[in-house]
Write a protein that binds this DNA or RNA. Sequence first.
DNA 1: TAGCCGTGGTC
DNA 2: TGACCAAGGCT
Length: 290
Amino acid sequence: MSTAITDPILDWYDEHARDLPWRAPDATPWGVLVSEIMLQQTPVARVLPVWHAWMERWPTAAALAAEPSGEAVRAWGRLGYPRRALRLHATATAIVERHDGEVPSSHEALLDLPGIGAYTAAAVASFAYRQRHAVLDTNVRRVLARLCSAEEYPPKSQTRAEVRLAESLLPLDPPTAARWSVAVMELGALVCTARTPRCVDCPVIARCAWQRAGRPAYDGPPRRGQTYAGTDRQCRGRLLAVLRDAEGPVAKPALDAVWSDPVQRERALDALVADGLVDPLDDGRYALPA
DNA sequence: TAGCCGTGGTC
DNA sequence: TGACCAAGGCT
């Protein structure tokens, strides 16, 4: 633990943290969990309205578990990666069945829930229950890569060295560790950004190895560009949007209309059914899952 | 483990 | 303008 790094970032966070609803004093563990799932690969600005509507409608895990999973998929709207909605519904069900309706507080129990991996388990345990865990998301990995390794970007996949580094920086006191975790994430989101870091606003610029090295440009393998137009993903998105926007079941021609290539369309539709995002009815129509 | 899984904003 | 990016997880 190095207070020379942690203290300035904690102080910076106290002054500059965004006022986000899932950080409010009255935020529930369920609200924190919902926010973490929604925020996976999705910007805060797009999550905010959906989170508010979601929490209004389903203030508890039990409330969500009482409804068909298709309602979760519909309420997910255009957040993207709709399997997250399905898994969040499954997690709500598991919380009711296995944890008496309460979001579990142990990292291990959280990890057992569908759609919750190492990051999200650590985030919920830290932010909802003030525990001490290394919280390694894309923001934290980037901050630590620059601050401690003089690299512009972290490695493509997470390494044990990164985990060890994050653990070594964690303050010993659990509530302080939890605040530190959210503080580093916030620093990465607002100052130590991927594209154009605002180093002039950085509270630890004097300690930054990347800064000292002259901010060398990333020289690793090319960071994968994810093309989208024409992919199965785009096709799936179009098909699911038809079902989301419809009141009830939809006839096949309505789906055929949104994608011209029949081979790709059928493949995508089959995959949506296999994923449980689409329910093929006996009468030949399609619906969101019951 | 690399590839897959949505969507929209940014520069 | 199009490539890159945004609080990952699963197989």
